[in-house]
Write a protein that binds this DNA or RNA. Structure first.
Length: 154
DNA sequence: GCCAACGTTGGC
DNA sequence: GCCAACGTTGGC
């Protein structure tokens, strides 16, 4: 049974439209342990992803993606040229993990965070309460509600 | 640009 | 292991 995730990106850095162009991307640069654990241990190919635009106007869910490759060591952690370089990462202990994400669809309009907050059934979404977690699980019911809102252009 | 929330680091 | 200082996230 595929899981559902909400994954955040700043659209100025990497947006749903960049993912549509690229088709697939490595979700690099996650440097939070809780989010790292989800990527390393739980995200599997075929899992469904709500692509969330953070630090945006408005912030909200911009489209859909899926996990294309399960967790593997994040190469940027070992790359001294990368802004995500971590001197504590090593071959023996990669410390940080990434997944590959594939484009699914872009909504006609972003479903704003305000709308998520105001929609019955989404009260417990982590994005509303634990807003700083950049990779977070989403229930099937929540996922379906958000997809309906997104396809309706809400 | 501000700042609240919160995660991480490091001294003890 | 505690906790103060510090850094980052992300909404506004």
């Amino acid at each position: 049974m595929p899981r559902n995730w909400l994954m955040k990106s700043e659209p100025g850095v990497y947006s749903i439209h960049d993912l549509r162009r690229d088709g697939r991307t490595g979700w690099e640069g996650v440097r939070n342990y809780q989010a790292r654990n989800f990527l390393r241990d739980d995200a599997k190919p075929g899992d469904r992803v709500l692509f969330y635009h953070s630090n945006a106007d408005p912030p909200g869910v911009a489209g859909l993606a899926r996990i294309g490759r399960a967790g593997y060591p994040d190469p940027t952690a070992r790359d001294a040229e990368s802004e995500y370089f971590d001197p504590k990462a090593s071959d023996e202990d990669p410390r940080w993990f990434t997944v590959d994400v594939e484009f699914e669809e872009a909504f006609p309009a972003v479903v704003p965070l305000d709308t998520l907050r105001a929609t019955p059934g989404l009260e417990k979404m982590l994005v509303i309460n634990k807003s700083r977690l950049s990779v977070q699980p989403v229930t099937d019911a929540e996922y379906e509600i958000v997809v309906r809102l997104g396809r309706a252009g809400a």
